[in-house]
Amino acid sequence: MDTPRAQSGLPTSSLILDINGIAQTVEVHPWTTLLDLLRSELELTGTKKGCDHGQCGACTVLIDGERINSCLKLAVTLDGAEITTIEGLGTPGDMHPLQRAFVEHDAFQCGYCTPGQICSAVGLINEGHAQGRDEIRELMSGNLCRCGAYTNIADAIEEVLSAQAGTPQREAAE
């Protein structure tokens, strides 16, 4: 792979990350964010850059099951972490229940905030706080959608949430 980032003469650290179930050794500069590592170096472009300031949520991924803005996380701090990106949740032929619900409810238009919304929704369900629509709205407010698909996003998450509430034994999402 072409790795323009690991520039000669500049410091790097070696770390092991489990990304979507595959352990990988990566060399990163201390200033490289998890977002830039995923997007530019590993070409996992499903994780989106919308502001690079932790203001929009487009870059949301799961670290050890918790949702986080990957633009605010330096990769070098993550040695040994388990990272799940949108690519790790499902594929077009084998979608995660939330991915299927997003398609069914038309919970996106341009699709750019969508991976972040879905990863955030997985994290939300893992947290176990959201019981209904008002909580979904409140707890998803870190993920902006400029196309205005909010009501459909809430519908999609509510559907998956209530399906899981009906099967309490099942591990939440993931």
């Binding site: 323009p4 070409e43 472009t45 949108i86 979608m95 996106f108 879905i118």
Partner: peptide, 27 residues
Amino acid sequence: VSRIDGPLKVTGQARYAAEHFGPGMLY
């Protein structure tokens, strides 16, 4: 009808303008 490009978008497979790569890229 659900969007035919939907599955690509929800799985992160839809590639936007900055998400293409080539050898010897400058920034």
